[in-house]
């Protein structure tokens, strides 16, 4: 314990300047499409089931300010795909596949409370994040092409705008392998690596406008991050 504390204190004194933060994360996402129907219908659940599916994000952020913690601004891009069986005439599942694809783009700022590590060598970094989202989506039919709505109103594709807020906690991995961390910083300029867990509140509903495919969800993300 004492050795770890000493190691972290030593580490906190020697690292190269930090400019960028990059993270990759995955979580279980369940788009709130059925929220539009207020319980009267569940088209998403009927086709894709009622459990979440993997969603992935990658983000790049630039350190804007540092002092009492660090302020980052950056962009992110995500990917989500759900596939399920189309419904036969009698409502049962057919063998045809249909899919929903969502690729949310984010413009966001993060505040990372990394001063605890600098001050006391505590390898935990709480953070908050907020951002604007813009999520192109499209629905595919059984042959993989973009589906029609079926009522003559064209192709089932579009984009939904919204916002997100997140609260997370990062664990600094450097303390477990101080020597490797120092080598990574020295040779590649990677100052810190983290694993993190983040609770994400995503409101993708076109800021409340009608005629929008609602893709909102609250979910956990888990991922790896590095500062360099």
């Amino acid at each position: 314990m004492i050795a770890t504390l000493v190691a972290t204190l030593m580490l906190s004194q020697f690292y190269s300047p930090i400019s960028w933060y990059t993270e990759v994360k995955a979580g279980s996402y369940y788009p709130g499409i059925d929220d539009e129907f207020g319980g009267s219908a569940t088209p998403y659940a009927d086709i894709f089931g009622d459990s979440g599916r993997p969603a992935y994000r990658i983000s790049f952020e630039y350190r804007l300010l540092t002092g009492f913690g660090s302020l980052y601004g950056g962009v992110g891009l995500g990917f989500f795909h759900a596939s399920g069986n189309a419904l036969a005439d009698d409502g049962s599942k057919s063998e045809d596949e249909t899919g929903l694809w969502v690729m949310p783009a984010a413009l966001r700022v993060s505040y990372r409370m990394d001063m605890f590590y600098t001050w006391w060598g505590l390898p935990l970094v709480p953070y908050v994040r907020a951002g604007l989202l813009y999520a192109p989506w499209w629905i595919t039919d059984s042959d993989g092409s973009v589906a029609d709505w079926g009522d003559g109103s064209g192709s089932a594709r579009g984009a939904t705008s919204g916002w997100e807020a997140a609260l997370g906690l990062s664990l600094l991995l450097d303390v477990f392998e101080p020597e490797s961390a120092r080598t990574m910083d020295h040779e590649w300029g990677i100052n810190h690596t983290y694993v993190f867990a983040e609770y994400n509140h995503m409101v993708l509903d076109g800021f409340g406008s009608d005629g929008t495919l609602i893709l909102s969800d609250d979910h956990w993300f888990f991922g790896l991050a590095m500062e360099y």
């Binding site: 499409i33 088209p43 086709i47 189309a86 419904l87 629905i139 595919t140 029609d148 709505w149 079926g150």
Partner: peptide
Amino acid sequence: TTDFAEHY
């Protein structure tokens, strides 16, 4: 069959 867009 009814795909997701149609069912929605």
